Amino acid sequence: MAMTGTAAQGALETRFGTIRGILFDIDDTLVDLEYAMTTALREVSEHLLPGLDQHGWERFGRIFTHETTHYYDRYLAGELTFNDQRLLRGRAALGHFGVELADGEETHQWLADYSRLQPGYVRAFEDVVPLLDLLDDAGVPYGAVSNNVHDYQRAKLDGAGLARITRLVGTDTVGVAKPEPAIYLEGVRLLQIAPAETLFVGDNRLLDAEGSTAAGLVGVWLNRTGETLQDFGGHEVSSLRQLLA
């Protein structure tokens, strides 16, 4: 059971009520992973797709980042390794343009180059640091809960200049992934406050907003892209700046 907020902890008046702690998703919430992925993808694939126009590259990136996430789900389920899902997503994107990534050295080099380049393009969104500064000033604890393993995400946060986010829960921390309640509640335990006093913010409506709400937290969908959903009745913001009252 999480401890309730102590006198040493501050509180923020948000548009969702009084909040004593905040948990964040990481990818495409705190850091612009889509930019990092698509930029690295283009760099390692240009020799395979010479002459592809900008529209084509946008389509290529869309397939990899949005239309092949079922491979990542299989990784979370233990059916694929992390590199397996990455390769299958790359092959699907290349295959859309009639290119087959050959087994052996070509595959190894493509994966190695992508794995080397992608972390260098990871950057924090511009609304992240100002919010963390405010939370630090107010004495409000915060952390991150991710559907990837702890050490991989630790390196990602550090590389993006977010080393101050010291409370971090990965899928290997408690052995489950979102939307299992235990992974959100482990983040709450690290903050040492009650779930109902904890805001959970993420870009995935199902895993972040609805999953955390079902676990007893105050879930918020960070809809950076302006996606329209008729049936969503939960909390929604388009920027971290909109979290505060």
Score class of each variant (00 low, 15 high):
residue 145 V to P: 06
residue 94 L to A: 00
residue 76 L to Q: 13
residue 137 D to L: 02
residue 85 Q to E: 10
residue 100 E to A: 04
residue 77 A to G: 12
residue 140 V to N: 07
residue 139 G to C: 04
residue 91 R to K: 14
residue 131 L to P: 06
residue 161 G to Q: 07
residue 96 H to D: 06
residue 104 G to L: 08
residue 85 Q to L: 14
residue 81 T to S: 12
residue 164 R to K: 08
residue 146 S to I: 10
residue 169 V to H: 04
residue 129 V to A: 06
residue 136 D to V: 06
residue 96 H to P: 03
residue 115 S to D: 13
residue 110 W to L: 09
residue 135 L to E: 02
residue 139 G to P: 01
residue 104 G to R: 03
residue 84 D to H: 14
residue 95 G to V: 05
residue 146 S to K: 08
residue 115 S to P: 00
residue 77 A to H: 09
residue 105 E to K: 08
residue 146 S to N: 10
residue 142 Y to C: 11
residue 79 E to K: 08
residue 106 E to S: 08
residue 76 L to S: 08
residue 80 L to V: 13
residue 149 V to L: 15
residue 163 A to E: 14
residue 169 V to E: 08
residue 130 P to V: 04
residue 167 R to K: 13
residue 117 L to I: 13
residue 143 G to W: 03
residue 128 V to R: 00
residue 94 L to D: 03
residue 88 L to P: 07
residue 123 R to Q: 14
residue 101 L to A: 01
residue 83 N to W: 05
residue 168 L to T: 01
residue 151 D to T: 12
residue 163 A to Q: 15
residue 153 Q to T: 07
residue 158 D to L: 10
residue 94 L to V: 00
residue 156 K to E: 12
residue 99 V to P: 00
residue 163 A to V: 07
residue 81 T to P: 02
residue 112 A to P: 05
residue 165 I to G: 01
residue 86 R to Y: 02
residue 118 Q to R: 13
residue 116 R to S: 11
residue 167 R to A: 12
residue 108 H to L: 05
residue 152 Y to W: 15
residue 107 T to H: 04
residue 143 G to S: 09
residue 96 H to N: 02
residue 123 R to W: 06
residue 120 G to P: 15
residue 76 L to E: 07
residue 167 R to W: 03
residue 167 R to D: 07
